[in-house]
Write a protein that binds this DNA or RNA. Structure first.
Lengths: 341, 341
DNA sequence: ATCGTTTCATGAATCGTTTCATAGAACGTT
DNA sequence: AACGTTCTATGAAACGATTCATGAAACGAT
């Protein structure tokens, strides 16, 4: 019923080794023999059994990726970039979604290890240094999305979050805001802490500026909305006049809350800036200023680094690729002096 | 170097079959034997080789999914639902992105077939009936996202697009619009044609209503924006007063174009309604009316159907699950009489 | 005719697991 | 003590591919 390489061999009247050679090294086989075998393969509808191939060859052709939140367009962009790059190298990408659960993250790592993927690309929630080193014993190359790791052990891809945070708040200060609020958390999410650090540095440069930190459990539109309502409950004087959110989703939530209330003008009373520059930032009620990160490039580069390590396991030295973020000014902070002007 | 089940057996001093039993049928093994073996597994850092497991067992524990556009939040929702449901059954989901290329779609099908996935969940671009039937020879269950298929051959999941299209345009007519435009295409995308059919039916019910069809090559924000600009180029009298787009992304693009022009009031001059109810529809400049589809449920149900077929291959009869769409009214069509009032 | 090369097909061995028929041990019953 | 049951451990066989040492065939040169 199920056609194996042996069936093809018998059908064509050659040895099974020859069929394998046609599949894997056609140039070592006589041209018309190749043709005959391929014909046989077609006739019998043979499809290679990848499990057997992998068992014997010892390696798979897949790369595993773990994202923390697939409904965040930024991660979706990253995954797309990763997938495109994987395809270039003739590999497949398997994507797992951890939903920011450290447990699910570990489960996926186990799964990927059983599958003997060539590499794992992930933004770790917990500290996984030891676990990831174990992966190496199965010749699996881990690549991280993260800035500060024990640099020597892994390749990594990251945005300069500290600088991004600085840029964002510097911009708020430049347009005259002084009561700054940072909305974000938890610290486990990559780079959040750095963005806050950068924000703090910018605030410290201006004498009368203050920074309030509003901690959140996750970074979603819903969270943004509820933080927004919480702000609306305050007396006007006690509200921030400039808010920097750890990602665009939260900012979009804030915008919704403020606009629906009809009681806060953006950016007049509160200026807003997000992070990532997802596609929907432009389409918001009030188009959102933000710090742009090249999401797809993160993915492309992450997978490239895996491919580098896999293709030359010996002469490989780990690299840390850092992308520079970029300020994008839209209406949620505009109608004022250009920051550079 | 690499630890196999045999190494574990030797290390613990039992037979290799016993180790396998501990892994696969622990209840048939004496309790303290189980403990000793597990201890050995831990000590040696053994990780099961899934390729070997699969080769011998004959089946994989993965399900393949092919999405047409992973950056569309609707598909992202679907993928998330599919993944969650796969995990419930202890399976993994592999997601491939066809970017609406029939060729890439076929490549992924080949790949999935080589991997002997348990099922494939996809919204076919081309007619794949024959190819999908071939998959059955490898006991791979195909499940489609699509309404009209040769019903007997496959399970499928779909939204009632005809009804959805009807609801959308009926709503536009109810608020007094008569010059309706439908924006969407190509027909290859699931359900587009049906949405148009439904739209047409609604228009036909009203004597003085007209329907203009604006065909597009894809369904993205960018396309929406350029259609919007094209509308703006027309004399005011020749513009539609109600527009129905084949998905929310296009509608968001239209909104951007209209709002940026400062020359068209939504919904006063042109009322807009989209399709899918992606999360960002609420957060748009003008919150978008739309036809809601339960994206995650599509994914959950699709994978469930695969599991049904896999778990009882004999007594299986194919099912077609149809989800009813729902009208969601927001500001892009509101400020008028409630459709039901 | 002989020899050396080159080209190319062969098939046994192997990868690491699961399965299953077999048999030994332990226990209760007569 | 003999027998039947139940429980549990054993290890050879099989899954389907790839690899590689081997040798046959074809060819050209001497």
């Amino acid at each position: 019923m199920v056609v194996s390489i042996r069936d093809v061999a018998e059908h064509v009247g050659v040895s099974l080794g020859t069929v394998s050679n046609v599949l894997n090294r056609p140039n070592t086989v006589n041209a018309d023999m190749v043709a005959r075998v391929l014909e046989g393969i077609r006739e019998l509808g043979y499809v290679r059994n990848d499990a057997a191939r992998q068992l014997r060859a010892g390696n798979s052709r897949t790369i595993g990726m773990i994202v923390q939140d697939s409904s965040n367009p930024f991660f979706a962009d990253m995954a797309r970039g990763a997938e495109d790059q994987a395809e270039v190298g003739g590999r497949m990408l398997i994507v797992g979604n951890s939903h920011q659960s450290a447990e699910r993250e570990l489960r996926y790592i186990d799964l990927f290890e059983e599958q003997r993927v060539q590499g794992v690309f992930l933004a770790p929630i917990d500290d996984l240094t030891e676990r990831l080193k174990q992966l190496r014993q199965h010749r699996i190359a881990p690549v991280l999305v993260q800035r500060r790791v024990s640099l020597d052990d892994f390749c990594s891809v990251a945005g300069d979050d500290e600088h991004g945070g600085y840029l964002a708040v510097k911009h708020l200060l430049d347009i005259g805001r002084r009561r700054i609020a940072f909305v974000g958390g938890p610290v486990s999410i990559i780079g959040i802490e750095d963005r806050l650090t950068g924000a703090r540095r910018a605030v410290d440069e201006v004498a009368d500026a203050t920074l309030e930190v509003i901690d959140t459990a996750e970074l979603t539109v819903g969270v943004g909305r509820s933080v927004g309502e919480q702000i609306l409950d305050r007396d006007r004087g006690r509200r921030p006049d400039g808010m920097f959110t750890a990602n665009d989703l939260v900012a979009l939530g804030l915008i919704q809350a403020f606009v629906m209330s009809h009681s806060v003008q953006i950016p007049d009373e509160i200026a807003l800036i997000g992070y990532d520059d997802i596609a929907f930032a432009t389409a918001a009620v009030v188009p959102l200023s933000t710090i742009r990160q090249p999401g797809a490039m993160f993915g492309v580069m992450g997978v490239s680094l895996i491919q580098e390590e896999v293709d030359s396991p010996d002469g490989h030295t780990h690299r840390q690729v850092l992308f520079q973020p970029e300020l994008v000014v839209r209406e949620s902070t505009a109608g004022f002096a250009d920051p550079e002007a």
